[in-house]
Design a protein around this nucleic acid. Sequence first.
DNA 1: CTCTAGAAGATTGTCAACAATCTACGAAAG
DNA 2: CTTTCGTAGATTGTTGACAATCTTCTAGAG
Lengths: 244, 244
Amino acid sequence: MSLEPLPGISTAEMVVQRIRDAILEGTLRPGDRLIEADIAAELGISRGPVREGIRLLAAEALVVLRRNRGAVVASPTFEDILEVYVVRKGLGSLALQHAISLDVATAPEFDDALVLLDRLRDPEVQGDPLLMMDADLAFQSALFDLSGLERITAVLDQTARDIPVFVRVLGITYDSVDHAALIERHDHLVEAIRTHHRDAALRAWDDHIRSTVGEFSRGYPDAQIERIFDLPLMHHILDYSSQP
Amino acid sequence: MSLEPLPGISTAEMVVQRIRDAILEGTLRPGDRLIEADIAAELGISRGPVREGIRLLAAEALVVLRRNRGAVVASPTFEDILEVYVVRKGLGSLALQHAISLDVATAPEFDDALVLLDRLRDPEVQGDPLLMMDADLAFQSALFDLSGLERITAVLDQTARDIPVFVRVLGITYDSVDHAALIERHDHLVEAIRTHHRDAALRAWDDHIRSTVGEFSRGYPDAQIERIFDLPLMHHILDYSSQP
DNA sequence: CTCTAGAAGATTGTCAACAATCTACGAAAG
DNA sequence: CTTTCGTAGATTGTTGACAATCTTCTAGAG
């Protein structure tokens, strides 16, 4: 279980991947302590890079740090994942508006996004919920990149990395997604960007967030659905922030 | 020039403060390299905490990291600071909406915000542009905290830490601010939150962003003001994202 | 029986030395 | 004169050991 020094990726980043994967596959669970020495030994490296990796994970909110008391795997709540979607709704709509105002439909990066969208049509991808989620988020990320707003895309990408982990940790099942409807919404979004229809694009984006969160909420096991729909955050997604 | 191990703050965080201060006072300038060994020697500590501090600064976009090639002080552009304000406009409006929907006006934290607002009326604070900026941002941060949205407030606080540095580095003069008008806008905002007037609050927030950016643009020495007002980001602040 | 004080162990924080990588300078070839 | 290559120096990446801090367990007082 040792790490090869792959080119193009630092040791600390490998630690990040390993720990994130361990959370995704259930080996590490919320509240588990991350002992630097143990992880270092298991990975066959020293504590330095492990420490650095843990700090990176803390910046992504996947672990929480306590001074002189180590790090533990974060315990996200359903409200946390809703907050992630509130952020994506808000910053995503900023990025999309900006991309449209830049007339990016002719840029080569636009085609990159289209290629990523096509991956969602691949039956093999559709067969694996996790693959589907990754592909979906990668497509969205490519769209946001069109804006050229690095700070905003950085935050969006961070939320995108968190989503699979949060979903896994919360025990949300992402299975019964209507793939055809999802792709259709994305097609609308792409078409709206291409034709400079700002309002249509924002509507498509809102639709997407709304359906995705609706899907999550239905698949959430802690079945107090009524309570969830009473959360202010849920109101946020359903109502007001779309028409201030 | 050595560091005392103050309680409640880690060595790495002291490194962050020192470097940030050095940028603010002009000792460190954009493009300057940050040599771990040099900084460690100057501060009388070892490279470990210095390294950690530099990574923290990189997460805040104040320095840029290049693999195996060290860190340099970031060279923000005028567009970068505009992007910061686009983020604050978007996420700030989300946080404020959320705070209002929570009926926070009765919470003790609301009074904390009021106290911070009063600091802006202090003549001594008004005398020092940097103090004024800090006090203003602290007040805004207290308002955002009312939302209880930790992820969103974390991003907002990060932008707040960047603003003084960006202003300094870009050579923006923040002198001719109309303090009375600034405070009046904030009073409107507070009153709107207290009385649950969501639209009034959002309008007050938009006003604030708009005036602040207008102020910045006027005080920007690279005097191509017309060009600045043609930037898509400026359109973003002036127009469309306020009424989708 | 419960609560507090203290010592032993576990774990993080820090350090200095070593290894790997990059940069800059200069010599040789074209 | 320009370009390429190679070496020396500078700097980052990594490591293992030590110091400081926290946690846990036990003994004793109440």
